[in-house]
């Protein structure tokens, strides 16, 4: 009896990261990641690569759902359509020009990329960039299936062809 009670308490405390719903984003969600270093030279002692936040919303269903909303509202679908690509590259295939890790995608959205990807940093809050990052990763299949919704309430675009 006592053991099951302890288990219940632990379960309740740990809860479930997927089911966290931060309706008012916490400070930790607004931290920018450490820069993705493109070379070896640093002015001063080398900073550890692993510091800085990775993705506070990894595996979080609410963030993916918000990211889906923002993807449409900020007109990412204008170039990337619903993940299938068009003017911009597809987000559902296996090819990630600038990398598929959360920090890579965050940087892509925040700083922009050559050939047409605008830089959203400073225009939208950092936590929203994290939500978009998580949604884009979900489009690419990197997020747990349990946290990702299989469809939206809108007209569906066809999925991109599977890579060979």
């Amino acid at each position: 009896m006592k053991r099951s009670l302890a288990l219940l308490v632990i379960l309740a405390v740990v809860a479930c990261h997927r089911e966290r719903r931060p309706l008012a984003p916490a400070a930790v969600d607004s931290q920018r990641p450490n820069p993705l270093r493109m070379g070896d030279l640093q002015p001063g002692p080398k900073q550890l690569a692993a510091t800085g936040i990775n993705n506070p919303y990894e595996g979080n269903a609410y963030a993916i759902s918000e990211g889906q909303r923002l993807f449409a509202q900020y007109n990412c679908s204008g170039c990337h359509f619903h993940g299938g690509g068009g003017i911009g590259p597809p987000l559902m295939d296996a090819e990630w020009i600038y990398g598929s890790s959360p920090v890579n995608i965050f940087t892509t959205i925040s700083e922009g990329r050559p050939n047409g990807m605008p830089s959203y940093g400073g225009h939208i809050p950092v936590y929203q960039i994290w939500q978009l990052t998580t949604y884009v990763r979900a489009l690419g299949g990197f997020e747990p299936k349990g946290a990702t919704s299989p469809r939206s309430e809108e007209m569906m675009a066809k999925r991109a062809e599977e890579p060979k």
Partner: peptide, 9 residues
């Protein structure tokens, strides 16, 4: 208004 789509600024 927790949950609102208006972000903090």
């Amino acid at each position: 208004k927790p949950g609102t789509t208006m972000p903090p600024n």
